[in-house]
């Protein structure tokens, strides 16, 4: 079948539509870039945090959007882990009575003598900071709290930030949403 030749009017109409789509797409894309780049989210500075426990109790969500995360490059992989065991635990075993975490959110795995690995189960973590306090007091401070942005509602006024006694929570740009300890951050 012979293809009908495009007339001048149709060509101009098509070109106008295409230009409009491209322009809208460009503006939309630019707006999207601006939105994600300049959006602000709440985050905890782990070097200011004093493990007061209010992240667990004062978040509007239950359980809290604050979770413990683990900087493995800082961890000493100790058998006697101050973040895992209660002080003066009966024995260094995974029995519930020895564990500091109220929800057993930390998995302890034997690697080789004398090293053990500690893995946080984010689903069980309630952000109580008990492990963070133990790790900071007696270890290298590799456990620390962070606000998880896949959970956080990003309230206009963070209810934890209002009560944080050490002003450890502030707004940060969403493209740098986490303040993770370790080699790639510094205590400054």
């Amino acid at each position: 079948m012979e293809k009908k030749a495009e007339n001048r009017r149709e060509f101009i109409q098509k070109s106008a539509r295409l230009s409009l789509v491209l322009a809208l797409g460009g503006v939309g894309g630019f707006a999207l870039t601006k939105t994600t780049k300049d959006e602000w989210v709440w985050q905890i500075d782990p070097f200011k945090c004093t493990q007061c426990g209010r992240c667990e109790s004062d978040c509007v969500l239950a359980p809290s959007a604050v979770k413990c995360i683990h900087a493995y490059d800082l961890c000493g992989y100790c058998d006697l882990c101050g973040g895992y065991f209660k002080p003066d635990a009966n024995e260094l075993s995974t029995a519930g009575e020895n564990q500091l975490c109220p929800t057993a959110a930390i998995e302890r795995k034997f690697i080789e003598e004398p090293y053990f690995e500690y893995i946080i189960n984010e689903d069980l973590c309630i952000g109580c900071a008990k492990c963070v306090e133990g790790c900071t007091s007696f270890g290298n401070g590799s456990f620390h709290l962070q606000i998880m942005h896949n959970i956080c509602l990003n309230c206009n006024e963070c209810s934890i930030a209002r009560v944080c006694p050490s002003d450890a929570i502030s707004r940060v740009k969403s493209n740098e949403a986490y303040k993770v300890k370790g080699d790639f951050t510094t205590n400054t």
Binding site: E91, S93, T94, A95, G96, Q99, A104, E107, R108, K109, F110, E112, E113, F116
Partner: peptide
């Protein structure tokens, strides 16, 4: 239930 031995200790 958190029981002793979940860390697989003692296999070395």
């Amino acid at each position: 239930v958190s029981l002793p031995g979940a860390d697989n200790r003692g296999k070395a």
